[in-house]
């Protein structure tokens, strides 16, 4: 039994570390499926994190906080969409600028919130079920956001594969010219997808500042937005695989922290690198299979659409 006693908190931290990645990556997946490459996920997340923290602090309600976070993400995504979709700015450059802008803006506006604490999100508690050893706290003892993240991924997968809206989204990403020829409003659909990605990025940031840390600090996201971007490629644009990727990355992050705590004879800097190294290696291995990527990748990813002539 003593093994399990260590295992349960470990798994719980893995879930906490993975949930924000899952949210952000699921949002970016939808954005990319419509053909828009938003490299500003990091910026969306960090803005969402601050907005959620401030919202919770002011209102005293974590739910309002999360809504603030989502709204902030949407606004940031709207800026990105206006620049790239309406004004045809380069998506890569604009995405990078969005990240830098988000990090700068939040360190400016967030300086007053450093050292402040807010109340954590409540965990689910079902008498009986949540007390089952090991499984209880893991399956029935999470906060609402964890369940929501799985619901989102499942919902996105279902919408993409089974519904007309999902089909239109994929079609716009596969060939914007053909979609336009059939009369679909390419730009409007991409706006919606980008804003959805923004909302999810904002929610991911909320989870960081309200649950994971829970406090505000500059550069709170610490590169997780980039990992979320990588996870989308890792999953070859399929929602189901996002869960695997996010939890793999979350698990490695937590395990290396524990390894550092246990005093493994490897410099801690190397251990801190492992999640990123593993992500890069997995990406390289997956990218080797070009045919698979060809089949799933949105062909119009990152390409501006001019409905000329």
């Amino acid at each position: 039994m003593s093994g399990f006693e260590h295992l349960t908190p470990l798994i719980l931290t893995v879930i906490t570390a993975s949930t924000p990645l899952l949210f952000a990556a699921a949002g970016e997946l939808v954005t990319e499926r419509s053909g828009v490459l938003n490299l500003g996920v990091e910026g969306l997340m960090v803005t969402g994190a601050l907005a959620a923290f401030a919202g919770t602090y002011v209102s005293g309600s974590a739910i309002i906080g999360v809504l603030c976070g989502a709204l902030a993400g949407v606004l940031m995504a709207l800026v990105f969409a206006a620049l790239t979709l309406s004004l045809l700015a380069n998506q890569v450059a604009t995405g990078l600028a969005l990240t830098i802008f988000g990090l700068g803006l939040t360190s400016l506006l967030g300086s007053g919130f450093i050292g402040v604490t807010v109340e954590n999100l409540p965990k689910l508690y079902i008498p009986g079920l949540s007390e089952i050893p090991v499984l209880g706290p893991i399956v029935f003892g999470q906060d609402a956001m964890v369940y929501l993240s799985f619901a989102c991924v499942g919902g996105i997968g279902w919408v993409l594969a089974r519904t007309r809206v999902g089909l239109i989204l994929r079609a716009v990403g596969a060939s914007h010219d053909s979609a336009h020829a059939l009369g679909y409003p390419v730009i409007r659909i991409r706006y919606m997808a980008t804003m959805f990605g923004g909302a999810m990025g904002g929610i991911a940031g909320s989870y960081l500042s309200l649950v994971y840390t829970p406090m505000w600090a500059e550069n709170l996201t610490a590169g997780r937005g980039w990992i979320a971007l990588a996870l989308v490629v890792f999953s070859t644009w399929r929602p189901g695989r996002l869960v695997v990727g996010a939890y793999l990355f979350g698990a490695i992050t937590v395990i290396q922290l524990h390894a550092q705590g246990l005093g493994v004879a490897v410099p801690s800097q190397f251990l801190s690198m492992t999640p990123y190294l593993v992500t890069i290696m997995v990406l390289v291995v997956i990218s080797r299979d070009r045919l698979k990527i060809q089949l799933n990748a949105p062909a119009c990813l990152g390409r501006s659409f001019h409905p000329a002539q």
Partner: peptide, 25 residues
């Protein structure tokens, strides 16, 4: 029927047709 075929390559025949047909899904 377009000269430069206006199909979506990664999608199935059914999906391609569905995109062009109005009405209920």
């Amino acid at each position: 029927v377009f000269q430069h075929l206006s199909l979506f390559e990664p999608l199935s025949v059914l999906e391609n047709v569905a995109l062009a047909v109005p009405g209920k899904w």
